[in-house]
Design a protein around this nucleic acid. Structure first.
Lengths: 220, 220
DNA sequence: TAGATTGTTAATCGATTAACAATC
DNA sequence: TAGATTGTTAATCGATTAACAATC
């Protein structure tokens, strides 16, 4: 009788998504510590830098393995290496940018993605005036070419910066040709099938929740 | 004997921050419903549109008042009005942008903030070549003028898009001259005193947590 | 009135923290 | 060895969901 995949893999209890979302923060801090020449770090020290409890750090890491030494702490370089491996940050990821308006251009020109293994390898826009233009070293393709290029270039991540009303349609097409992670800048939350990840970047929501705390509620 | 402020204000249990962060989503959906001509909406219908349970919507709203009618639901226009009032979205907010590089320019030119009552009224940059330039109708000021202009223009919100190494310093200055809400685009989390709000926009973190799910973990 | 839906309390779920035996 | 710190279990905390009396 076949074992189910969970028991085959000897998996401990599944890692919550909130924990996965914190791992990149750990990677960032460890990268800085490595640059500063630190060799070992304790959960206590990491917690201080990240403003979280040491218990949370140890618990988070325990979902993925045993990386520390009692009495000593974690080797900065080894823990960093393991976390990057777990997050897939040692791989190169081909990324498409869809929508080359003002925001799309800022994203394409932003140097912050590349150091982390994200390669912007294709850009798309529906505007014929923009198609053919070179932005940040990339020639802008028309949306008609999307399916072909996404498949041929093995693009699994897309950054979508198109007008709100086109977002769901664009995301649907991307998912249909193999994209499994979408970073969306439109103020909606596109719906995708199970197994596809979406993260929304929505600064207006952030501002709108902060104003709550700037507002006097004594009379309501 | 003086009552403590909680009992003076007849406050029910304090609203959790997660709830405040959802209110702008409710405002957004209700705005759309109003445009579509809907007059009444139930927690059930709102829940379907937002992909959350109706119970969560009713519970969230209950922290701020009783807005519905049993057997009928919520008046779209009235609930929208009340939520905007609670969030301070009927006020105008003067906003400064600090850092007029590529990202700052994209932010200044982005039309999406204005409709929601956020007025970009001042821009600052440390680069003398940029100071004096006009971007999106605003003359860029030098950082020396920051304190004076933030105070005189009653700016309580700042959008910070400066290099990482200058971020904490800039935020400290902003807070010192009265800013109480910061939208930060650098890949760090600036520390601020109690009572000041910070939201970080950090697309790299979003990408880095998504790659986890694109990665094969069977051999680790 | 009968049916529908709220507002709220209680139950459940999940995430965080504390505590401590194991062990470097 | 003695001291320090992990990894993990149990306790706590907080957020979500279910259930239902109140009531439109």
């Amino acid at each position: 009788m076949a074992l189910d995949s969970a028991s085959q893999n000897q998996r401990r209890s599944a890692e919550p998504e909130v924990v996965v979302e914190r791992l990149p923060l750990y990677v960032r801090i460890l990268t800085r510590l490595l640059q500063e020449g630190a060799e070992v770090v304790s959960s206590q020290q990491l917690g201080e830098k990240l403003q979280v409890t040491p218990a949370q750090i140890r618990k988070d890491l325990s979902y993925f393995g045993r990386f520390g030494k009692q009495g000593r702490g974690y080797s900065v370089i080894h823990l960093l290496e393991r976390l990057k491996l777990i997050l897939g940050l040692n791989s190169f990821w081909n990324v498409a940018v869809v929508g080359v308006g003002r925001l799309g251009r800022a994203i394409l020109s932003y140097p912050g993605f590349t150091p982390d293994g994200f390669h912007l390898v294709a850009a798309f826009d529906s505007n014929p005036d923009v198609v053919g233009e070179t932005v940040a070293g990339l020639t802008v393709n028309s949306l008609e070419q999307l399916d072909e290029i996404v498949s041929s270039k093995k693009i699994s991540i897309a950054i979508v910066a198109v007008p709100t009303e086109h977002t769901q349609g664009v995301v649907d097409r991307l998912v249909a040709c193999g994209v499994r992670a979408v970073l969306n800048y439109a103020p909606i939350s596109p719906q995708v099938r199970e197994g596809v990840r979406v993260r929304n970047i929505d600064p207006v929501l952030s501002l709108q929740s902060m104003t709550y705390y700037l507002t006097d509620h004594s009379v309501e």
